[in-house]
Write a protein that binds this DNA or RNA. Sequence first.
DNA 1: AGCGTAATACTCAAATTTGAATGCCAGATG
DNA 2: CATCTGGCATTCAAATTTGAGTATTACGCT
Lengths: 199, 199
Amino acid sequence: MSTTRLLILGLVRWVQPVHGYDVRRELLSWHADEWANVAPGSIYHALKKLAQEGLLREVATEQVGARPARTRYEITEAGEREFQTLLRRYWWEYRQPIDPFFAAFAFLPALGQREAVAALRNRARNLRGHAEFVRTAIDRGGFDGNEPPHTFELFRLMMARSETEAQWCDEVADLVAAGDLPTDAVAAAPRPQSSNIQT
Amino acid sequence: MSTTRLLILGLVRWVQPVHGYDVRRELLSWHADEWANVAPGSIYHALKKLAQEGLLREVATEQVGARPARTRYEITEAGEREFQTLLRRYWWEYRQPIDPFFAAFAFLPALGQREAVAALRNRARNLRGHAEFVRTAIDRGGFDGNEPPHTFELFRLMMARSETEAQWCDEVADLVAAGDLPTDAVAAAPRPQSSNIQT
DNA sequence: AGCGTAATACTCAAATTTGAATGCCAGATG
DNA sequence: CATCTGGCATTCAAATTTGAGTATTACGCT
């Protein structure tokens, strides 16, 4: 299930009463656009949906000049309960994130050996660059300094992941360079019958 | 953008002519349900959409008894070009995957210290368990043996990630246990003004 | 032969997500 | 003081995703 519900519910709870734009501002300041669905539409949709379900309450709608009116929300009793439930679900259940690179890698054989090696090395560079960027940002006390300390741990996790993955990329690049993995497939091979779907 | 397009296009290209159910079968055999959107509806939708865009072509519709007719698809010239484009995009562009746990962790302060530590340790266990499961499955030559070798590298990546993340969980659990990270927040603190949104 | 379970194959309404588009206001620039 | 840029605040149609639902056949078991 979607992460957006938890994010919006939790954020409203945290900074209430808030309106959509502020929610988005806050989420972007968390760099949440890199790891969650925070397109404007998603936020406004979630806000309305949650209100409609009685988990949020419209508190006020202000208007400045002729700009679109802002609707501020706050969390309700029911919302608080739902938040606790969702929070626990995501803390206790493990689900692998959806990673677009997996899909790409599955089609390694469709790529040329040269390009595969180059792309993997490039990816390793990107990943290390990303890690380095996060590291220096942390070290130099970037991030305006208002962030609660657990935010840094989140960044540390990103760094650790990036480094692990970078190393994997280099190892696989070596394998591909050595010709140990299939590349340059021209035509499709006949595939064996795959196994069944279990309900 | 969605990974499903690439996955379906590539799979049809690989095993054509195929029908939806087979595509799903194959994807599940790759355990793709763990890292991509492969609900039945997604697959049939993508198939129809791609056909409508002229990237796939309906090749035949067979019928066995009174069961729903199967429509087999194959890739077109245009589809092949699109596949190459998408493949390259995903190989060369780095995008962080969307991870539901990040959202959960962002609300660490809303959790009790006790529970946070327990959940983190539990997550570490889960992650190590997952890694171990994959490892033994590989070692014992699980996975029916028809998988191309690069599939194993994908599993190795999953393992490496799981281990990295498990270690992080333990470290953070220690920090939380030591009281170095905020937990048990009761009320919301007033937040400072966050920065602006750049277009 | 009859029964239950599982596999086959897809549909559809509902929910979610995207991101371009809209339009206003404030401050800087020339 | 006219214009341009960029921040504010949301809407909306279109695209995607979900997953339960439908209905048929194959297979093993008693």
